[in-house]
Design a binder for these strands. Structure first.
Lengths: 129, 129
DNA sequence: CTCCTAGTTGACGTAAACGTTAACCTAGTT
DNA sequence: AACTAGGTTAACGTTTACGTCAACTAGGAG
């Protein structure tokens, strides 16, 4: 019933269109974990939890964040702060990231407008042939 | 009257808080040009046009694009298409970039929501001290 | 003339994020 | 038994985007 589906490394790789090496690398630098590896074959298995982590990592990458930054952000999701000091430190980090993200959204909207403007310029300049 | 202000390399560098080396590198790979270099001292001078180009490059970088991608996008701004075929090729490129950018904005908004959610979770869990 | 500042061209070095290859293991065919 | 498919570790290679350093030059300040 509660049998959780697990994935092999190549299943995850094809699922997200990345290489197995990439997944091993993420594990190497502590961004991904493979629980319950077969003690004999040493093969990695991943749970849905790790699949979601990987998805977050790839989203972060597409958005231009470094793996280090992504690691810290995921840490935000998973941290269990002890005491008020730790909590406000985390909230401050969240706020700074939020500001950064909002700035990035604004810049992207500006870039979008720019490209639209140039595109329309081309569309309206009919070439006489 | 129409005397355009020009900048030295270190002026531009401090203006955008980057190194001179970075500027030379961008020139090296054909993303920036220094017109009218002193024939004796070989010193570079930049016009407002190049200052704007540099600004675009740095914006692109902050948004997570590679220098190659940025180069292509700037090419979009500066291209002067000959004939309908060339024009529709450029418009198609613009469209694909626009899609990409809109997707990126959406992802950023989702990330923003995620972080907000987690932040509020921490804020509302008062620690009893 | 000497020194300092600001620039120049190579050319080699480096961090991040993987790619690639070698040498090995195990499970499942044929 | 031999082969194939899919996985493992270890280690060296590669690309991007610069950093760093050496050796040189031209223009002023004193």
């Amino acid at each position: 019933m509660t049998e959780e589906k697990v994935f092999t490394i190549s299943e995850l790789a094809t699922m997200f269109d990345i290489s197995s090496r990439t997944i091993r690398y993420y594990e190497e630098i502590g961004m991904l974990f493979s629980e319950n590896r077969d003690s004999l074959t040493k093969q990695r298995t991943y749970t849905n939890r790790e699949r979601r982590r990987l998805k977050m990592i790839l989203r972060g990458k597409k958005l231009g964040f470094s793996l280090q930054e992504i690691k810290e952000m995921i840490g935000l999701y998973e941290s269990n702060p002890e005491g008020e000091a730790e909590k406000s430190r985390i909230i401050a980090f969240a706020d700074s990231k939020l500001k950064e993200i909002e700035e990035q959204i604004m810049q992207l909207q500006m870039l979008r407008e720019d490209i639209l403007t140039y595109k329309e310029k081309y569309e309206n300049s009919r070439v006489k042939t």
